[in-house]
């Protein structure tokens, strides 16, 4: 999938990060493609923050229009701000907190998907996600809550993507390229991992400031 258009979870909510290496019509197409090909499970009205200070007002407006056709709200976090620091404008504080609250609520909604998520596909939800299938290399799962893969997990999984440090990732075979929980990252070893490297179900969570894996007996 393109690196020019990336959704990222962060403590303050979901962010859309755009690289200025391609022209604007391409960006628009990539966003449409992404919203079409991803499995988006946002509640209507979910706020997505735009991080691309190199866009002009009209361009931001036209991106906002694309998102609103998908029932999503695009919010500019760079409005009239110095771009050096990653400070979030107070005006948007309320919406950011909403996203936060939804993530750490404990009783977030769960999206269940009964299929394998393949290379280039992405599942994004502000709640928890259960995949009844594999998450393949090159696929990404981004959840505000927990992620449970009832199969082999080889892609990128990001649980607690809006800052929830309590979030966990579980999988029958946990051999991902990357596990992220809140803002912590754990990377796979630099060798090809086979299913036999992770024969039993495991759980990943944050303990003492790092991501740890633990075998689980029952699920």
């Amino acid at each position: 999938m393109s690196e020019e258009v990336v959704f990222k979870g962060s403590r303050s909510g979901l962010k859309l990060v755009l690289a200025n290496t391609v022209d604007f019509p391409t960006i628009e197409n990539l966003i449409k493609q992404k919203l079409d090909s991803s499995f988006n499970f946002f509640q209507k009205g979910t706020v997505i923050q735009l991080e691309a200070n190199w866009l002009d007002k009209a361009q931001k407006q036209s991106l906002g229009n694309i998102f609103s056709t998908y029932g999503l709200v695009l919010q500019d976090i760079n409005t009239d701000k110095e771009t050096g620091k990653q400070a979030f404008p107070q005006v948007e504080g309320s919406t950011a907190q909403n996203a936060n609250a939804a993530g750490s609520d404990g009783k977030t909604k769960t999206t269940i998907i009964n299929q394998t998520i393949r290379n280039g596909q992405e599942v994004i939800s502000d709640g928890s996600i259960v995949i009844n299938g594999n998450v393949n290399p090159g696929a990404a799962i981004i959840a505000g809550g927990n992620i449970d893969v009832r199969g082999s997990c080889r892609g990128i999984v990001h649980a607690g993507a809006f800052g929830n440090m309590e979030a966990v990732v579980t999988a029958d075979h946990l051999i991902p390229m990357q596990i992220r929980i809140a803002d912590m990252v754990a990377r796979a070893p630099d060798k090809w991992m086979s299913k036999s490297d992770a024969p039993y179900p495991e759980k990943a969570y944050i303990s003492n400031g790092q991501i740890v894996l633990e075998a689980i007996s029952s699920r």
Binding site: S37, R118, N119, G120, Q121, N136, P137, G138
Partner: peptide
């Protein structure tokens, strides 16, 4: 090999689409 299988996976996703 890893790269060929990854591309095949992508193609299967595209075919499904």
């Amino acid at each position: 090999e890893v790269a060929a299988v990854r591309d095949a996976d992508k193609i299967i996703g595209e075919l499904n689409r």
